[in-house]
Structure formats: structure tokens, C-alpha cells
Amino acid sequence: METRDREGGVSPRNITGLVDALEKTGHVRRAPHPTDRRAVLVELTPSAVETMTRMQREHADLDDSLMGAVAPSDRPFPPAAPGSRTTARC
């Protein structure tokens, strides 16, 4: 969780609380690190993977719908390649 702390700019206590809540609701599970006894790995549960997959699909569909309402000449970037579902372009 230390890497997430640094990247997100939040305290270890906040991360622990978030992971506790996600674990309690069945979205993540903790697993021991294979080589570092001090570390704990946090991984999504199968149901959370299904939820994330559905949410990503819904987000991509919404993005397609919204971008479909904008004329291609008014878009600040070229259209995505056919079949790709890229929702963030920077």
C-alpha cells in the first residue's frame, strides 16, 4: 500500500481504512507478499473484476455516445482506431 500512498498523496491510515472497507464489502482481499513478510498485497475479488469490467464498458459506451454528438472536425484529437475502446486521450 505504500506505493499507492505516495502516488495518491494520502496517508497510510487513509489507505488502510479504504482497503478495510473494500475488503469488508467483498471487493478486495489481502494476500501476503511472497518475499516480503512486512508487505501485504491487495487484489480485486472476482466479483469486483466483473463490476470493474462492466463499469469500464459503460464508461466507454457513454464516451462513444458523447463523442458521437461532436462533429469529427470539432474534436481536438483524431478518432480512435476501429475496434479500440480508448476513453482517455492526452
Rank of each mutant, 00 (worst) to 15 (best):
T16G: 09
T16H: 09
T16C: 03
G17F: 09
G17W: 11
L18P: 00
L18N: 04
L18M: 13
L18Q: 02
V19S: 02
A21R: 15
A21F: 15
L22E: 05
L22N: 02
K24E: 12
K24S: 06
K24Y: 08
T25G: 00
T25D: 10
G26A: 05
G26L: 05
G26C: 04
G26H: 04
H27F: 12
V28I: 10
V28F: 03
A31N: 08
A31E: 13
P34C: 05
P34E: 10
P34L: 08
T35S: 08
T35K: 14
D36G: 03
D36T: 09
D36M: 03
D36C: 05
R37E: 06
R37N: 10
R37D: 06
R38H: 13
R38V: 11
R38E: 06
V40D: 00
V40L: 04
V40Q: 01
V42Q: 03
E43G: 14
E43Y: 11
E43H: 15
L44C: 07
L44G: 04
T45K: 03
P46Y: 01
P46V: 09
S47Q: 13
S47C: 07
A48Q: 14
A48K: 11
V49G: 06
E50F: 09
E50W: 01
T51K: 03
T51C: 09
T51Q: 06
M52H: 01
M52R: 12
T53S: 04
T53P: 00
T53Q: 03
T53C: 03
T53W: 00
T53E: 01
R54M: 09
R54K: 14
R54P: 01
R54Q: 05
M55T: 10
M55D: 02
M55K: 07
Q56R: 14
Q56C: 12
Q56F: 02
R57H: 01
E58Y: 08
E58N: 14
A60H: 07
A60Q: 01
D61C: 00
D63A: 15
D64A: 12
D64C: 02
D64R: 15
L66F: 10
M67T: 12
M67H: 08
M67V: 14
A69S: 15
A69M: 15
V70T: 10
P72D: 01
S73L: 10
S73H: 03
S73Y: 00
S73N: 06
S73I: 10
D74T: 06
P76W: 05
A80W: 02
A80V: 12
A81I: 11
A81V: 13
A81N: 09
A81M: 09
A81S: 10
P82T: 13
P82Y: 04
P82R: 11
P82D: 00
P82N: 03
G83E: 00
G83T: 09
G83I: 07
G83R: 07
R85V: 03
T86H: 13
T86G: 13
